[in-house]
Write a protein that binds this DNA or RNA. Structure first.
Lengths: 153, 153
DNA sequence: GTTGAAAATTACGTTTACGTAAGCGTCGTA
DNA sequence: TACGACGCTTACGTAAACGTAATTTTCAAC
């Protein structure tokens, strides 16, 4: 009970895990969302954009280990600043039956470019921070000066 | 001729500067845009949002020194990450007949908050950069490994 | 049989800062 | 007087990533 996972808590609420000990640990959208800290809307949106393609049990989505791996990559890509479109292009290059050397070259290239962009952003951000902190100090001292004058009245 | 400014070149094209040596160095939208490195659309957009309010000569906008000062502030605000709406709120607080202590307090507060946001962004960005550079290196070495295997065939 | 939780679909709304026509007026010069 | 440069207004488009209804369906439990 002590180390009970969030996912288990979730399913214990009411719904028994879909055949506990299932062959591929399939989960439904709610559990998936909880595990990754995203909303249901997000998962459906990603599916709409072709980033994940869970199987269906009727109308209900079922996510497998592969889907979780995909989602992890998507979220990683987003974290490092790729757009979903770029992430999709990269993922779509993956060939489960090939060496994926082509894909890796592309990924490497894109990563390096993105890294350059991020560093540029960082430079701009540093610039803005410098400017703003200077500005802040100016305002602060100017304000103090004016308050001093008022006090002296 | 050597140190001729872009603005002068611009007006020399065809239009004489509006009464060269005018009392307030008014300029039209084209010259203004050139001087600040923004598009005409941007200036009209800012006006639409109430950030600048140039006078008119008929339908033609005329920008004075004050307008240029305002625009400088707008661009500065944007550079440090304020939205145009926030910039406007700050500028609207300015009272040419008061001490503007109230405005300065608000500005100081907003600046400090924004500074905090920027620093947070920088932390996130640093995080992303670390993650991505690690990822990049992994891809690079993995790719080299696979290429080595192919060569060994 | 009904209720409640979870899930599904459809589709419009949001945010920011302009871009991009389309169509028309104005001015000075060749 | 016609042309080119410049300017004006109106208004839809864009990009990204979901949010937010609104309504309906499914399913297991009581």
């Amino acid at each position: 009970m002590a180390m009970q996972s969030q996912a288990e808590q979730y399913s214990n609420t009411c719904t028994p895990v879909p055949v506990k000990g299932d062959q591929d640990e399939q989960m439904r959208i709610g559990e998936m969302a909880a595990e990754f800290g995203v909303t249901l809307r997000t998962l459906r949106f990603y599916e709409d954009r072709g980033l994940i393609s869970p199987m269906r049990d009727g109308a209900t989505r079922l996510y497998t280990r592969r889907d979780r791996a995909r989602l992890r990559l998507v979220l990683l890509g987003r974290k490092v600043g790729f757009s979903l479109r770029e992430v999709k292009k990269l993922l779509d290059l993956y060939d489960p039956h090939g060496t994926n050397i082509r894909q890796m070259r592309v990924a490497l290239d894109k990563s390096e470019r993105q890294l350059a962009r991020l560093r540029q952003q960082r430079a701009a951000l540093d610039d803005a921070i410098d400017e703003l902190s200077g500005l802040t100090e100016n305002i602060r001292s100017e304000l103090e000066a004016r308050l001093a004058v008022r006090t002296a009245d």
